[in-house]
C-alpha cells in the first residue's frame, strides 16, 4: 500500500522541478534592471497611502471558520460513504444526527448574518 504512494512523492518532486526550471531559465535569459519606480507597489499609478496591512473586516474570518467546521464534517462522511453498503440503517441514522447537529450551527450562522456579504 505504501508503494502506491511512492509515485506521489515523485510527482511532487517532478512538478516542483517543472515549476522551478522555467524560473531558473528566465533568471538566466531575462533582463534584470530593477529601479525604484519599477519596484514600487503597483496601485494604479497612485503613490501608496498608509500601511499596506490595513484592517480587513472580520467577515472573512467567519467564512473561514464555517469552512473549517464543514470540512471536518465532510471528512467524517468519507469512510461512511465508502462502507455504506456494509452498514445497516443505523449508520444512516447516525449520519443524519451528525449532519443535523451541524445544521443547527449552520442555521445559527445564517440567522446571525455570518453568511451574508455586507
Amino acid at each position: 500500500m505504501v508503494a502506491s504512494f511512492g509515485p506521489i512523492a515523485m510527482a511532487v518532486v517532478i512538478a516542483t522541478i517543472f515549476g522551478l526550471l522555467p524560473l531558473g531559465i528566465s533568471r538566466l535569459v531575462a533582463p534584470r534592471k530593477p529601479d525604484s519606480v519599477k519596484n514600487a507597489p503597483y496601485e494604479c499609478g497612485v503613490e501608496t497611502i498608509g500601511p499596506t496591512m490595513i484592517q480587513f473586516k472580520n467577515h472573512f474570518y467567519l467564512y473561514a471558520l464555517i469552512f473549517v467546521i464543514f470540512d471536518v464534517e465532510a471528512v467524517f462522511l468519507f469512510p461512511w460513504a465508502v462502507i455504506f453498503s456494509q452498514l445497516g440503517t443505523l449508520a444512516l441514522v447516525e449520519m443524519f444526527v451528525f449532519v443535523g447537529l451541524l445544521l443547527v450551527g449552520y442555521a445559527y450562522a445564517w440567522r446571525k448574518g455570518a453568511l451574508d456579504w455586507v
Binding site: T16, G19, I25, S26, R27, R32, K38
Partner: peptide
Amino acid sequence: LLKEIIIPTQADKIPFMLAPLLVLVPSL
C-alpha cells in the same frame, strides 16, 4: 520567459516566489 521578473522592493521575496509553485504543483 524573456520578460524581467519584477520583485517589488517591499515584497517578501521567498514567499513571493513560492506562491506560484504552491498553486502550480498540486494541479500537476
